[in-house]
Design a protein around this nucleic acid. Structure first.
Lengths: 233, 233
DNA sequence: GAGAAAACGAGAGCAGTGCTCTTGACGACT
DNA sequence: AGTCGTCAAGAGCACTGCTCTCGTTTTCTC
């Protein structure tokens, strides 16, 4: 990755990085709708058409920012998870929840780009999925660790999922090996609950109703963890 | 509302409605980003500047579409709720869930406009909140009905919310009178879980993983209902 | 009913956008 | 040394939101 062979490749990599850096700054300030190739070029002292040597279209630049965003939130989640002892499964879950929310609050426009409406007529998912699942992989590992340690003891108050769910559960189980179908279903509920909450809070659905979202968020995520069987110490 | 006094007011109301209708059609086809005032004017046989007599800016037109959208999903939810017997609280909850999801699948771009990223630099919430809470009011009424009937018997497996949650619970309780704080907290979890799921499904987060989202959705919402104490018959 | 006032559609125009094409210069390989 | 590919620059196209002006038409007021 670093130090391309020729000088041309080196300066090209550097300019590409500079473009994405400036674009990310513009994105953070005015959002995805206000990201302008010409403005980026202007700030770089280039003419607008020169940008197209590096990104074939505006959507490609946005895709690059999306991938960077997924990696950023994935890294934040990985770090939060790694900072907890491996056997503190409940603590790791809560750390992941707060990492997602904190990152979203710090980078609202980037979060909107990742988990909000798909802006430019449905992005190409092929390049992005690899980066998009980093946080999910961490989440799955927590559950798999807890299950392997026999620490996943969910309360027996929910109905089992229908048999037709098993084929989908098979695919989800790839990131949380060993979990039975009913726990896979609960894992989906908790995961969508996490992002549903963050989206509601960030997109203004809680406006003038929930004035202390941090408290309610923490409690809600703790409940989701309990339902997963992650009994906190 | 109907039949304004003068002929001018009548044609003005009709043209305003025609603009929003065409705009909604364009929105449904190409999304909010592709909505163009000039294209709407072109289809109406007007010149672009004439539109500004009816909507001072593109954002105002979008705001009108947002309000219409909130009313549409609110009406769908109200109808789904009304089609069930009043005492079938669990059935009403499931009907509301499916109404939200069905409407979202039928109007993906409109759903994205309402519950996705706030597009034009944060909309003015003042005009929209009145319409935005229609579905929430239905949801709250179901829970209040169930609670009043003594049918809200949630499993005792979750920790109580912290005391500092009570002031926020006070505001939420306005739409679900009588519910204690811990049930208000569960209501928030279920509500965000519903929209979190629909957003994940609609925005492509489930792509190539959950291939039968209808089944998983139904089961997940049933679980949310159980946790609320809505034991289905 | 005549005149003032407001509302209206049309048109030109400004500043901005994504994107394409061509031109001329520089760097990299044979 | 010469060829070839890459590069920045510029002009230009079609489009956008929005503003302003100019006649026309409708409404309100006297």
């Amino acid at each position: 990755m670093s130090a391309g062979r020729t000088a041309r490749e080196r300066v090209r990599a550097e300019l590409t990085r500079e473009i994405t850096d400036i674009a990310r700054r513009h994105l953070a300030v005015e959002g995805a709708a206000g990201l302008s190739l010409r403005a980026v070029a202007r700030e770089m002292g280039m003419v607008s058409s020169a940008i197209y040597r590096y990104f074939p279209s505006r959507d490609d630049l946005l895709t690059a920012l999306i991938i960077d965003g997924y990696n950023a939130v994935g890294e934040a989640v990985e770090n939060a998870d790694a900072a907890r002892p491996r056997e503190d499964h409940a603590g790791r879950w809560m750390a992941v929840c707060h990492a997602v929310r904190d990152w979203a609050l710090a980078h609202p426009h980037e979060y909107a780009l990742l988990y909000g409406s798909p802006v430019p007529g449905y992005k190409a998912p092929d390049d992005t999925v690899a980066a998009a699942v980093r946080d999910t992989v961490v989440y799955g590992r927590i559950l798999a660790d807890a299950h392997e340690a026999g620490a996943l003891t969910p309360p027996d108050v929910l109905p089992p999922p229908p048999a037709s769910f098993s084929t989908d559960a098979l695919r989800v189980r790839e990131v949380m090996p060993g979990l039975p179908d009913d726990l896979v279903a609960r894992a989906l509920a908790a995961w969508t609950g996490l992002f549903g909450w963050v989206s509601f809070e960030l997109f203004g659905q809680f406006n003038s109703v929930i004035l202390d979202p941090a408290t309610a968020f923490d409690h809600t995520m703790r409940c989701h963890g309990m339902l997963l069987g992650l009994r906190s110490g």
